[in-house]
Structures are given as structure tokens and as C-alpha cells.
Amino acid sequence: MKILVCLSKTPDTTAKITFKNGNTQLEEAGVQWIINPYDEWYALVRAIELKEKDPTIVLHLLSVGGADLDPIIRKALALGGDEAIRVNTTETSDSFYIASQIAEVARQGGYDLIMTGKETIDYNGASIGGMVAELLDLPYISAASKLDLNGTTANLSREIDGGEEANEVSLPVVVSCMKGMADARIPNMRGIMAARTKPLKVVEPVDAEKLTTYVNYELPPAKAGVKMVSADNVGELVRLLHEEARVI
């Protein structure tokens, strides 16, 4: 059994987001990078739990991007996993291009289970898992909140509009992971030491199309400021929401 977990980096949630070069590029100065929370807390930790239950599982981590990813990959390896692969490219803005790289690594590696996060919290695409599944012609369970393996079958729960459903599917499968899968962990000293010697393979990208271009960015207009209403005059709030904001 081989599992591949796809990891991306993202600015820490508390980072202040600004742009440079005429709003065409993210200002990276002062930005702290973290592993995308969905990838780390849910996909990776669940994969580690599965491996703890079945030590014969081989767990690989994959990230597409430049060498600046390496510290983040090491941190992920400190949580668990046997080895990591980085597809070396600076082209990380087009989802299809990244998905094509992931699909290629997946084809080469013959994985039974490919896990991604539900979405990245920077580009909020929620796209790459589905694209990888299509490129590999595999079933795709998106927004999964539970995952168990039973021989060559996966049992999952996934979120649907207005509810939840339980699924059963034969491997191989692509799964995008969200809350419910697992609880966040922090690496321990032993993990950190072990991560230093785990292999981090760097491979070159394959040719792939880019379907989209990020032209420029914009910050949302500043809020006009809060209008305070007295606690003794709740009716005034309702009037404002009705007559001024027109939302009720």
C-alpha cells in the first residue's frame, strides 16, 4: 500500500497581505510560511495514523515548487512519512500545471491513495485534487471528513451541500481532506531528528500547459467603520439593517 500526500505552502493566517510591483505580486517580506492547514492537519496526519495502524504502508509527501519549500517539507517529515519528493519549479500559479506535475509523480509511483487538502487558504482553488483525479482517470472524493482503509477498499464520509454522506470505493482513489479526518499534531524531538535524514528527492517538472494567468490583485475596500447602537435601543439596529443596509 502506497500513499501520496500533497502539500503546499501558504502564508500564515495572521499574515498581513499586501502586494508589490503595481499589485501584480505578493509582498513576501515579513510573511511567515506554513504548510497549508488542510494538508497538514487533515491529509498528512490522517495518512500518518493509517501508517501507524498498518506499518507496511509506504507514505510519500509531495510538494511542487521551489527550494524555499524545503523547510516546510522537513517539518512535514518531522510529523511522519518515509520520504518526500519536490517537483522543482517556480511556476506555481496555475492549478492545472501543478496538477499535471502531481499526476506525473503519481503515475511513476503507483500510489493507491492520493490525498490533498480541501483547498489552499491562499489561492482558495479547491481544484487540484479534482484535476489530478481526472488526469489519472480515478474516482475523486472531495471534502472528505473521514477515511478508513479496509484492504483495497476505502470507506469515507464526505460533505455534500446540506449534509454528509458515507462512501465506499475501491482503490486507487484521490481524496481531498477537511476537518474531522484527524487532529492537529506537533512534531516531537525524535520526529525532528529523524526528518533530517529522510530522503527529499528533487525532480524536474514535466511539460504542461498553463490554463490561467494571475494578472493582478486588489485589496478589499476598507470598512467604513462600525456604527455602534446602544444596548437599550435594539429596535434601532433592526431599523438600520432594514432601511440603511437593506439586508433584512
Binding site: T13, I121, Y123, N124, L211, Y214, Y217
Partner: peptide
């Protein structure tokens, strides 16, 4: 993009 902290203009 950036979970509500910004917008991007994307060309298809």
C-alpha cells in the same frame, strides 16, 4: 484569494 483578505484578477 487569501481567505477574503484580497481579490485576484485571473485571465483564462
Amino acid at each position: 484569494v487569501f481567505s477574503g483578505k484580497a481579490y485576484a484578477f485571473v485571465k483564462l
